[in-house]
């Protein structure tokens, strides 16, 4: 796979991008020397919490913000010199709902189509799947829509001019698990239509739905690769441990001398050990009075990898 990639044109290229914001007394380095590239036709994920620098990168790539340093291209066009061209070929869905609240669903879509010199009819096939769910409410004002509907309308508006690349800034934040699942299914369909997608999220479980991901924190990239590769490179045995009293188990696991890391993960605790010896752990937990516990070796998820990288 690796050697094939040279045949693709890069959808996005960033080289040593730096962006700082200065308030009265303090300076924040929002993007700290970030370089990466996105292949054409790829779903590329920027994964990280609030404050990682994801939005600044989106705004630089969509020509809405100037970087302090570095070079960035979108489909071969320079974000500074060729901003006009870029704006006509990208679709951008900002993290904050940015449609016109007092226009109706249909008016918003028509407005965005008109701005890009096209019509809803011309590219309807592209948005049909998504927009169909909104059509019963097309005379409702955008401001009166619920979160999930707003998100679908925003995606429709970002797509209506048939962009070559989509930038989606945290499209699923605050969205329930069912709507999140549906949203990712929509992205999969868009990918098959040849649209490159750069998407950010703070939900680590969405990372595995991307072709490649960049794990970000405090303006820097900790790791870029395919999700499976990142998981394969975890480099440690990971154990899921559960018992009847999960809260006490967490305290006991944290106090275990061989514990390297221990985090609560839903109905299990995830554990890595300095000396990898499950038998010894078994004895320790038995001695600590846990009788109904279970230790099993598991494959790490992206969230495990993220936390492991954070600690360095």
């Amino acid at each position: 796979m690796q050697e094939k990639e040279v045949l693709y044109m890069k959808a996005v290229e960033l080289e040593n991008i730096v962006k700082t914001y200065s308030a009265k007394k303090s300076t924040v380095v929002a993007v700290n020397d970030v370089s990466f590239s996105v292949n054409e036709g790829e779903v590329f994920g920027l994964i990280g919490p609030d404050g990682a620098g994801k939005t600044s990168i989106f705004r630089i790539l969509t020509t809405l913000l100037l970087a302090d340093k570095g070079i960035a291209n979108v489909l071969g066009y320079d974000v500074v010199k060729e901003w006009k061209t870029i704006r006509s070929i990208v679709g951008y869905m900002p993290g904050k709902f940015s449609l016109y609240q007092d226009l109706t669903v249909e008016e918003n879509l028509e407005f965005f189509a008109t701005i890009f010199n096209t019509t809803i009819q011309e590219n309807y096939d592209l948005v049909a799947d998504i927009y169909k769910q909104l059509e019963p409410f097309k005379t409702r004002r955008a401001g009166k829509l619920s979160g999930g509907m707003k998100q679908k309308l925003a995606l429709s508006c970002a797509l209506i001019h048939k962009p070559k690349i989509l930038f989606l800034d945290e499209p699923t934040t605050g969205v329930d698990p069912v709507s999140r699942k549906e949203f990712w299914e929509m992205l999969k369909r868009l990918k098959t239509m040849g649209i490159s997608i750069v998407v950010s999220t703070s939900y680590m479980d969405e990372a595995k739905l991307c072709d490649r991901i960049a794990l970000m924190q405090n303006g820097q990239i900790m790791k870029i690769d395919r999700p499976q590769t990142i998981v394969d490179e975890f480099g440690k045995n990971l154990y899921a441990v559960n018992s009847a009293n999960m809260f006490r188990l967490l305290t006991d696991l944290r106090a275990y001398p061989q514990t390297e890391s221990c985090f609560a993960f839903g109905d299990k605790h995830h554990l890595t050990m300095k000396e990898d010896n499950p038998k010894m752990l078994n004895d320790y937990l038995t001695n600590a009075g846990h009788n109904d516990f279970n230790i099993s070796k598991i494959e790490p998820g992206i969230e495990d990898c993220f936390m492991q990288l954070m600690k360095i």
Binding site: G48, P49, F263, F306, M310
Partner: peptide, 19 residues
């Protein structure tokens, strides 16, 4: 939704506080 957008380590620390 107290933990939306919060990093995974802090999210867990937040739950420690809840407990």
């Amino acid at each position: 939704e107290p933990t939306g957008g919060v990093d995974p380590v802090t999210r867990r620390q937040f739950w420690d506080m809840i407990y």
